[in-house]
């Protein structure tokens, strides 16, 4: 551990932009709202940028959530910051708690509200999972086509644009929601994907850790196949190998009503054969009295697929240099880890 920034404040999202080396950090300052910070010197100094924000909307003060609570439209949390691809330096996406998606075309200096997604008729069906309002947590930009973007929403399903956000289609067929009445179990507009992960070498292949299971897609999120991830299909985090479409990692927890590792033992589960089989990787991870939960942005893999890192709700941080075969704990006692990025 060599450096700490924003000590004492909450950082809810972080992005290392491989194109220019900038680091973006989304802060949640409680009383003072959400803030966007950027460093161009590896975190030595930071500058505050304009934070993504809803446009001023007439009558916003009387707006209500799906279940009838007053909610004046405001960005509650910056939840994911994602760099677009190499063809558009300076283009970034930001998903928020509140359910709005934003794009910057100027290295975060300003943010555009993605109105087309917000105004899609099915968006009105979204509701919050673990929060009063829905939230966009995953943004997967096609490596060759920056206008082709898939986003994941809790609870609002899987959405894709092929025209840079001007229009959106709802995917997610095959996902199921046990938290809904039977008649709406397969409703694609209210699914709770906890996290989406894209294989950069084969971007039609997406992996999903969902509230009620784990899924894989071969058509960029349109349809999904349920997969059996031992020791449990519940969890938050998933990472896709950037080069090998058949390899992915999950960090399961017991179930939604018991958010602890199965048998109080931390395990990373890896498939290398497109979910036909899984290995439970435990070497170097705590195997007794461990109550670490790995949140959805807290598992990361590098551009080679060999280095991984994950942090936990109880402040543990582990790294692997061999694709997850062996892990070592970073020597630090951290606050709860929300998000991990690898250079």
């Amino acid at each position: 551990m060599s450096q700490a920034s924003f000590v004492g404040d909450t950082v809810t999202a972080v992005c290392r932009d491989a194109r220019d080396g900038a680091i973006y950090a989304g802060q949640g300052l409680g009383h003072w709202g959400v803030k966007m910070q950027r460093s161009r010197d590896d975190g030595a100094t930071w500058e505050e940028l304009a934070a993504p924000a809803f446009p001023a909307i007439e009558g916003a003060e009387s707006h209500q959530t799906k279940d009838g609570k007053p909610w004046p439209m405001r960005v509650e949390q910056l939840w994911t910051i994602v760099a677009s691809n190499a063809s558009r330096p300076g283009e970034l996406w930001c998903g928020t708690v509140g359910g709005a998606l934003f794009r910057s075309r100027d290295h975060g200096a300003s943010w555009e509200f993605c109105r087309a997604l917000w105004e899609h008729p099915s968006r009105a069906e979204w509701f919050g999972g673990g929060a009063d309002v829905p939230a966009i947590h995953s943004v997967c930009v096609h490596p060759e086509d920056p206008d082709d973007v898939v986003v994941g929403v809790s609870c609002g399903g899987v959405w894709r644009t092929r025209d840079g956000g001007a229009s959106w289609t709802l995917g997610g067929k095959g996902m199921f929601a046990a938290f809904m009445p039977e008649a709406r179990k397969f409703d694609t507009a209210i699914q709770d994907p906890h996290r989406l992960a894209q294989c950069d070498a084969a971007p039609d292949r997406l992996w999903c850790q969902h509230h009620n299971g784990a899924f894989v897609s071969d058509d960029r999120g349109e349809t999904w196949r349920s997969i059996d991830v031992p020791p449990s299909v519940f969890g938050f985090a998933v990472a896709a190998h950037p080069r090998d479409a058949d390899t992915a990692w999950f960090v399961p927890a017991k179930k939604d009503e018991e958010r602890v590792p199965v048998d109080a033992a931390v395990v990373v589960t890896r498939t290398r054969d497109n979910a036909a089989s899984f290995e439970q990787l435990r070497e170097g991870l705590p195997q007794a009295f461990a109550y670490d939960i790995v949140l959805r942005h807290a598992l990361a893999v590098d551009a080679t697929g060999s280095q991984l890192a994950f942090g936990s709700s109880t402040g543990g941080l582990w790294v692997s240099e061999d694709g997850g075969d062996r892990w070592s704990m970073v020597d630090a006692r951290l606050p709860p880890v929300y998000t991990v990025a690898i250079d």
Partner: peptide, 18 residues
């Protein structure tokens, strides 16, 4: 100008816990 977004939300209201 930098102080504004700390005190008011994007709808111009005093932040919820200010």
């Amino acid at each position: 100008p930098a102080v504004k977004a700390y005190v008011l939300d994007e709808q111009g209201a005093v932040r919820h816990h200010v």
